[in-house]
Design a protein around this nucleic acid. Structure first.
Length: 218
DNA sequence: CCCTGATTCGC
DNA sequence: GCGAATCAGG
């Protein structure tokens, strides 16, 4: 395989969208992630993460026109600043670092996001016999999720691989999407964060900083 | 161990 | 220019 214009174009597109080199390689086929990374560098695309001292505004020569639109898979509360490019790797603790540093699972989907490695609990219901009034799995209590995060999650869900229960592995996001009682149900399936049951975007929803004040009255 | 991107260097 | 091998990190 060679780097035809089309392939390069797809590479650029996916790279600027925030896709990982391995994902791009998989998509292109016939190349390894190393090849992709090598090409990315040769093309002059690279993540220019402004380091403190080094050139504050090094205008990237062949800078890929940043897309202000799509928030890209990088969720994180940091998305609060739409104008600026969200930091690639922001840890969970946007507002209240002090007494709230400890991430805590919200009453989201699966059992306890922290413990089980498999068991995508809520999904295991057979179509047709879902008791009325049973709480639907996904739709995390939309209580206190920043609109930005929520938006990026929806964006990610569009991109989800829509895999079935059988296709889940230890490394796929197990976030359920849709109503298990219908055939419009699937799992996110995007690459899960190492050690975690969900992809980055869903981790950010499942593990809230606990800061955002919860229900005013309860 | 899984994954990420970055770099090197023979081809 | 290409990309496997390697490095450095999470």
């Amino acid at each position: 395989m060679s780097w035809t214009d089309e392939r390069v174009e797809l590479l650029k597109k996916m790279w600027t969208e925030g896709q990982s080199a391995s994902q791009i390689a998989k998509e292109l086929g016939g190349v390894t992630r190393n090849a992709v990374i090598g090409k990315v560098h040769r093309l002059g695309l690279s993540n220019r993460v402004e380091g403190g001292a080094s050139a504050a505004a090094a205008a990237p020569a062949a800078a890929p026109a940043p897309k202000p639109a799509a928030p890209e898979p990088t969720p994180a509360p940091a998305a609060a600043a739409p104008a600026a490019r969200p930091e690639p790797e922001v840890e969970v603790e946007p507002v209240r670092p002090a007494a709230a540093a400890t991430p805590r699972p919200t009453p989201a989907p699966a059992a306890a996001p922290s413990a089980p490695t498999a068991a995508p609990a809520p999904a295991l219901r057979k179509p047709g016999i879902v008791p009325a009034g049973q709480p639907l799995p996904p739709q995390p209590s939309l209580n206190e999720i920043s609109p930005e995060t929520l938006a990026s999650v929806r964006e990610v869900e569009k991109r989800s691989r829509k895999i079935s229960l059988m296709e889940l592995t230890e490394r796929t996001c197990k976030w359920p999407i849709g109503d298990p009682a219908t055939d419009n149900f699937y799992f996110c399936g995007l690459p899960a964060q190492a050690g975690k049951p969900y992809c980055e975007a869903h981790v950010s929803v499942a593990f809230q900083p606990m800061s955002a004040r919860r229900d005013r009255r309860r």
